[in-house]
């Protein structure tokens, strides 16, 4: 299968006495969708933040595309091809939907030390932004101030912003959280359309979504990966069922 796009070795982070992640090993290959599941408090969001560079790890290494990125800050990693969504919606609320995405395009394009020309009439930013909005199905909401979007639309916008940075690796922290059935379906369809084109790490509680989208599943419990396998095998894994699915084995 060749070298992994993302290679994580022995990653750890503690908050005081609490070990949020405790020696996590991961390998994700180009084009693969890896889902990370686990009970609440297992350390999933901490892990995503460590991968994205928002949290400094206590120990361990992260290699991305053959390069050690452990010491890089979040913006530096973003420019290397990392993109993330947040568990709690995180957009630029005062800006319009289109501006949110155009900012992400601009972040990827560099050239931000331009002081004079209006950014929002610059086709180099606006056209790719519109393209991405179309892809996620938000094109009719381009002019709406982001604060006024619905919850489901916020989630779509987050994915749009991640896509606009033309990432190689997408880190999605519970993109389906708080969504209704219809919204969830739309999100699953969107993510399915990205599958294969992008490498995705998906943290999600919605098991239906996970089993439909994931190529492999890792189970995180108390900060440790206790199993990584194909969805079918994970379903049958007794240890996983006991620790996570809550069934009596």
């Amino acid at each position: 299968m060749g070298e992994a796009l993302l290679e994580v070795r022995n990653l750890a982070k503690s908050f005081g006495a609490l070990r949020a992640t405790d020696g996590v090993d991961l390998e994700v290959h180009e084009g693969e969708t890896l889902a990370i599941i686990g009970p609440n408090g297992a350390g999933k969001t901490t892990l995503i933040s460590q991968l994205a560079g928002n949290l400094r790890s206590d120990a361990g290494r992260v290699r991305f595309a053959g390069e050690d990125v452990t010491a890089l800050s979040a913006p530096r990693r973003a420019r290397k091809g990392f993109a993330r969504s947040f568990q709690i919606t995180s957009v630029f609320p005062e800006f319009s939907t289109l501006e949110n995405v155009a900012l992400a395009v601009q972040a990827h394009a560099g050239h931000s030390l331009r002081f004079w020309r209006p950014a929002m009439s610059d086709p180099a930013l606006i056209e790719p932004a519109r393209q991405v909005l179309k892809e996620v199905g938000l094109e009719t909401r381009a002019g709406v101030i982001a604060a006024n979007l619905s919850h489901g639309e916020h989630r779509q916008l987050e994915v749009a912003m991640a896509l606009a940075t033309q990432p190689r690796l997408l880190l999605l922290d519970e993109p389906m959280a708080g969504m209704g059935i219809e919204e969830s379906e739309r999100m699953i369809a969107l993510l399915a359309s990205l599958k294969g084109r992008l490498t995705i790490i998906l943290v999600e509680h919605d098991m239906d979504a996970v089993f439909r989208l994931a190529d492999r599943i890792s189970v995180l419990v108390y900060g440790r990966i206790i199993a990584t396998d194909s969805p079918d095998k994970i379903k049958l894994n007794a240890e996983v069922r006991k620790a996570y699915l809550g069934e009596e084995a």
């Binding site: 994205a52 973003a78 995180s90």
Partner: peptide
């Protein structure tokens, strides 16, 4: 946080 995540320092 969002600005950092999309790659702005």
């Amino acid at each position: 946080a969002r600005a950092l995540a999309i790659g702005f320092s």
